[in-house]
Design a protein around this nucleic acid. Sequence first.
DNA 1: GTGGTCTAGACCACC
DNA 2: GTGGTCTAGACCACG
Lengths: 127, 127, 127, 127
Amino acid sequence: MFYINARNKKPIYEQLCEQLRNQVVEGIAVPGEALPSVRSLSTELGINPNTIQRAYRMMEEEGLTVSIPGKGNFVSMEIETFRKQKIASSLNTIRDEVKTLKRIGIQEQQITELIKDIYGGEGDDQG
Amino acid sequence: MFYINARNKKPIYEQLCEQLRNQVVEGIAVPGEALPSVRSLSTELGINPNTIQRAYRMMEEEGLTVSIPGKGNFVSMEIETFRKQKIASSLNTIRDEVKTLKRIGIQEQQITELIKDIYGGEGDDQG
Amino acid sequence: MFYINARNKKPIYEQLCEQLRNQVVEGIAVPGEALPSVRSLSTELGINPNTIQRAYRMMEEEGLTVSIPGKGNFVSMEIETFRKQKIASSLNTIRDEVKTLKRIGIQEQQITELIKDIYGGEGDDQG
Amino acid sequence: MFYINARNKKPIYEQLCEQLRNQVVEGIAVPGEALPSVRSLSTELGINPNTIQRAYRMMEEEGLTVSIPGKGNFVSMEIETFRKQKIASSLNTIRDEVKTLKRIGIQEQQITELIKDIYGGEGDDQG
DNA sequence: GTGGTCTAGACCACC
DNA sequence: GTGGTCTAGACCACG
């Protein structure tokens, strides 16, 4: 469910948080689903429990999960917000990059064809 | 020629480097052009000379500039590489984001219209 | 693990970087091995932490090490590249010098005997 | 007779000095030969006359040239010393590199063949 | 004037 | 504890 990229300069707790965020908006993690316990994830990833704890705390602060004392951490039931946020964020990123490409002199066609290719492929090439 | 955004989490030397990178790919900084001296930029921005030095060193390591001791720092003569890199990088970013949006369930049309809007505007909304 | 030669004209950060490079290609420093912490090496050598930092940063930029914030600096797992680079570089240097000697009028025999002497000695006259 | 590589980090006066040194030991510059005047070389290379002056001064200090006031600078008649120095220096460099290669595990044969190739070619492949 | 190196010491985030 | 960034200011070599 989670993995760590030690070479990545992002802090570990951020990596974990981001992974759950992505899984949630893409429907891979479903509302109500239980997250691994702090202890088990800690040993599985070889990471300090404090760091896992911090990641879980951050997830809860974001509203991404709910923590039920004595039970564990669970994906929140209110995830539509995150889907909208992610869409807005992605569109913004695309807008910025496209503007840059326009300034550099790239033709609109080259970009639209890239998109057509992606949507043309029926399958989901998620890694 | 350069500015600092204190609110930006990125380190100052990175901001400077990134700004020159953009100016180069957009043709605002032309090959052979002299950069401000370490000291002058330092006082102009209210930044420690060491930090400017580091930014300039990084630019040179990237091949973005050449440093001639006793003379100054100058935009490199071979900048076409950076234009190509930037294009490839931007297209990759767009590809990733579009794939994500597809997975989330966004229609192709919504993205292509965003792009059409950007290219429809004659002006350059830079800065 | 490291030492400083004050008489050497090369900057300190370069000396450190070069030493690790040599230790790596000669198998003295093994992949995954931890380097001294910035602070400890700083006090051990009587060098400013900033300078050590810079050396370590340069090593990482070269791909010689990986830096994990909060953990330390470690010899990279992919060091075979450096061995090959070093071999190529050494052979090139030898080639250039031999060509010069040929031009000056030195006999081939004089050079080959030098090499035979080196390989004839069983021991390793390192350090 | 001289050229400047602005990208080279070596100071200009050092580059000039080194070039004459090489030309002398290789017989390209012959004893008694006149060097370009400070003024003419200065304009030819687009270099500050002071820098040329410094290079010429250094050449004279090395005993590489003699300066005759009112006449100019001339290659020294005593150049055999430099030939011997260059040979010693080259042999030392080769010795060091070969030792390194031995330590890394390179076979003697690989090096001797490199040398045989160089001496096998009748011509002088100097650039 | 220019860039390059180094010291001394502070502050931050991460683990 | 760790690495990373930044400031303040000195000193050097080069042109």
